[in-house]
Write a protein that binds this DNA or RNA. Sequence first.
DNA 1: ACCTGAACACCGTTCAAGT
DNA 2: ACCTGAACACCGTTCAAGT
Lengths: 222, 222
Amino acid sequence: MWVATRARRSEALSRERIVEASVAILDAAGEAGLTFKALTERLVTGPGAIYWHVANKDELLAAATDAVVAAALAVEPAGSSAQDQVRAVALGLFDAIDEHPWVAAQLSASSWQATAPRILESVGRRVGALGVPQRRWFTVTSVLVQYILGAAAQNAANGRTLAPDTDRGEFLDAVATTWEELDPDDYAFTRTIADQMREHDDREQFLAGIDLVLAGITAGEA
Amino acid sequence: MWVATRARRSEALSRERIVEASVAILDAAGEAGLTFKALTERLVTGPGAIYWHVANKDELLAAATDAVVAAALAVEPAGSSAQDQVRAVALGLFDAIDEHPWVAAQLSASSWQATAPRILESVGRRVGALGVPQRRWFTVTSVLVQYILGAAAQNAANGRTLAPDTDRGEFLDAVATTWEELDPDDYAFTRTIADQMREHDDREQFLAGIDLVLAGITAGEA
DNA sequence: ACCTGAACACCGTTCAAGT
DNA sequence: ACCTGAACACCGTTCAAGT
């Protein structure tokens, strides 16, 4: 009753607990849901207590983003070949951003600078193992990371657009139908691929993109 | 004096003028700068007048984004080969987002849905011209678009981080130095490429990425 | 050192009233 | 049909006061 109660009721406030609560709120309610009111209610304090540990809301978002990325990269990727490991790291980030869609917006914001080395390092080591000559490491790794984050961001954005209860099949069908109804003169191509969009799988397509880039790297151009 | 004055003083309010003013404010002051106060001052009205033409702020941001993207894609890309045209379209978008960095955040937000067909169409036509078999059009085009937007978004984010008066060389040097001071055990790779980051050119690297993807497409994998 | 909570300036949005 | 501008609810941040 004594010690246990104290621990359960209100563990001392800390940066870690604040970031943890922020991630939970962001997951549940999105970026718009993360307010100091929501935070203080969840942590049972006043705003001043939070400002003691964190400079402002931007820093909070950056810290929450870094926490999610760090967790995603902490999983040691299975797969023996360097190619498989690149795919595993890429998919790990893709899934993490898919589960925490608000991360996408943050990664193309200023919090980027703190998290960049983590991602560069994890992808870059495998680029080295791929046999890419050292003078191309920076370029090749940057391209891979840009593709990974770009694709993951758009996937997350698509997911966010949906109301939580919508059927994915219905949604894709609705988008495809919209595309098919576009002006044939201006949108001939988009109309043609509408049907392929109807049946595509996001993760499969993401991996196809990784394979495309890997094929380009192996082809040894650029 | 009579008609001219009326025209100069306050051209009738319209959705178009509101979007135009929004783009100008976003360019000058970023996303945080676009407030209804700033808009009403610039357009010399009250907030109610703006709400008559536009549903809410989100719609305003989406419309501003679409205007910038449409303008970037309206330029007919020079270059004879399909490969050159892909590069030209890609670079057009890259530069547009570089000039209007706030577009980056919007393109991975929900406004995406309205602008997507424009970009798909423009890139996709050249993918067709590349000789890619039709069943792969959707995948290949999506990969290209994801890379283009992902890379452009990160480039824009990097630009935004800088104070407007900072020297680019100094900034890159500072980041590279930070990387070189990372823990050698955890960041062996990142330390190795720090020097390449110091001297890289963003546009060149972006095009190298396009070439990598194009090489992958030509290699015929995936 | 850490926390409280009232207070401040500001923001998006609404709406009754005007023309 | 289009515009005005006061009013509302809410938000991030500060700070004097407490322990």
